[in-house]
Simulated scan of single mutants.
Amino acid sequence: MKKFLTLSATAAAAMIALAGCSTDGGSMPGMNHGGSTTSTVEATVTTGEHNAADTTFAQMMTPHHVQAVQMSDIMLAKSGLDPKIMALATDIKAAQGPEIKKMNTWLTGWSEPTAMAGNHSMNGMMSATDLDKLKAAQGTEASKLFLTQMIAHHEGAVEMAKSEVTDGKNADAVALAKSIVASQETEIKNMKDLLAAL
């Protein structure tokens, strides 16, 4: 029971931070903002131990996911594209958005910074020039560019996730990494098929 109470306080504090609510400092263990969101956040707070690999995974995968969502948003703002490309962009955004929140909640629960200090290169990340090209492209050219960029982006994410599976300690983080490997390897195959058909 003691562990659950600690989890509830941590979850409430994480939920307040994520929701942007202001408090007068410190967590408020007795505070309940009501609704089912509390149990949702509680489910994503990891109580197990974590190591440096878990922290690095969450800190690096978060901005990696943020960029994938950004790339998807660029495509979803265009008109006249193949419905399969639009569906792919929608699916990527729907999958990775909640994972971003989950990893930030973990980092907060672990008392770790949500962003990694300094500049760290990550495989598969697009440059500002790459994103500008994607924004400017239209029609089939945009679809081809999106697929080419997202394949490389996913391959970088899979590489990072495999490192977490090997080196991570936290069961929830390792489980997410395994899920990323499985889902993104499937999407890479699907994207290569879509690219070949264009």
Rank of each mutant, 00 (worst) to 15 (best):
V174L: 07
A177V: 07
E141N: 07
A152K: 08
E164H: 14
G168W: 05
K178W: 02
A95N: 08
A136P: 05
K84R: 15
G124L: 10
M125W: 05
N190F: 00
M116H: 05
D130R: 11
V174C: 03
A117M: 07
N123E: 15
N104G: 15
S143E: 14
S163Y: 07
A87M: 14
A128G: 11
E112V: 04
T129S: 09
E99M: 01
A177R: 03
H154K: 12
M150D: 09
G109K: 01
L131F: 06
S143M: 06
L145I: 02
A161Q: 06
A95C: 11
G124V: 09
A177I: 06
I85P: 05
T166E: 15
A117Y: 01
G97L: 11
L134C: 01
D132M: 06
I188W: 07
S121L: 12
M116W: 02
T129K: 06
F146M: 03
K169Y: 11
H153Q: 08
N123F: 09
P113A: 01
E164S: 15
H120T: 09
G139A: 07
M160P: 03
M126Y: 04
A89D: 12
M126R: 05
A89N: 13
K101V: 06
E187P: 02
G124M: 06
D91H: 08
S127R: 09
M116L: 05
S163F: 06
S127D: 12
I180S: 03
V174H: 00
K93F: 05
L176P: 03
I151L: 14
N119T: 14
T108I: 08
A152V: 07
S127Y: 08
H153A: 11
D167Y: 13
M191N: 04
A128K: 12
A175Y: 14
M116K: 09
E99V: 00
G156W: 08
D167N: 15
G156V: 13
V165M: 14
A152E: 10
I100H: 00
Q184M: 02
